[in-house]
Design a binder for these strands. Sequence first.
DNA 1: CCACTTTCTTGACTCGGTCCACTTTTTCGG
DNA 2: CCGAAAAAGTGGACCGAGTCAAGAAAGTGG
Lengths: 141, 141
Amino acid sequence: MREPADILREHGLSITAQRIAVLRAVSHRPHSTADALTEEVRTEIGAVSKQAVYNALGILADKGVIRRIQPAGSPALYEDRAGDNHHHLICRTCGKTVDVDCATGETPCLTASNDAGFRIDEAEVIYWGTCPQCLAAAARG
Amino acid sequence: MREPADILREHGLSITAQRIAVLRAVSHRPHSTADALTEEVRTEIGAVSKQAVYNALGILADKGVIRRIQPAGSPALYEDRAGDNHHHLICRTCGKTVDVDCATGETPCLTASNDAGFRIDEAEVIYWGTCPQCLAAAARG
DNA sequence: CCACTTTCTTGACTCGGTCCACTTTTTCGG
DNA sequence: CCGAAAAAGTGGACCGAGTCAAGAAAGTGG
Ligand SMILES: [Mn+2]
Ligand SMILES: [Mn+2]
Ligand SMILES: [Zn+2]
Ligand SMILES: [Zn+2]
């Protein structure tokens, strides 16, 4: 990721220590919760309020700088890979989340079998399963 | 849907008025929240605790009798069409949720472009967009 | 450097859901 | 059918994730 301050400037956002640290944290630990990011921000700049983190994540997601995903049964996760509508593969056992490129080409997945007259703007795909480590652990009993 | 009592029996569940009413409610109003279903159950059998509804929904979902979906930004929704892993199309404006058959054939969607060693057991797809009514309302200004 | 705007902090609050102790129902063998 | 044991339901406290709102602090533009 480029310099956080530049990114903020380019989107017309004022530049604050909190936002910079949030951006760095998201970039450093993609697919993290707001809570985990808050901890990371605290180790970086000493202190931050939970609200400041939620505000920063919210506005950055609105501007398309970061992406928020909300898997069932988990708090929202944030990542800096935004704008490409890639998908995710999540381990049911340990929660490990990995990126998956879109299965069906360039502007993919936007065609439902029957769109019922909707204008579709996003196809969100989550693959659920078990990660290699958890498979191995299960095999060992 | 077949007789609720039979369904419960077949899954080894004891038969209670609350469970029967929950099953009927889910069947009558698919893609409803626990809250909406609770109201419907109350009009049917007079009274029910919120906990009983959650318990019934939980165990019925565990047994595969009903399906729970958890779209971002919404409480969980329940439906009686379970076991076919169909997908959903949700209006960002009004929340209207409609079923979409799987785009890619019979046992579909279970192949990610790169599975990273995971054993995938489900591909959950949500199409986001705007429903015909909300499109029309937007056009009218 | 100053006024003005934006953001941050703090703490209360909401919503969806769960936990728990207790009561009521259901089930099932006799 | 009856009565014991098991299962489910009730009501109320509680929880985690996130939001709201008022005042304090920091950023911005001149
Ligand atoms: Mn990702
Ligand atoms: Mn459905
Ligand atoms: Zn795992
Ligand atoms: Zn709509």
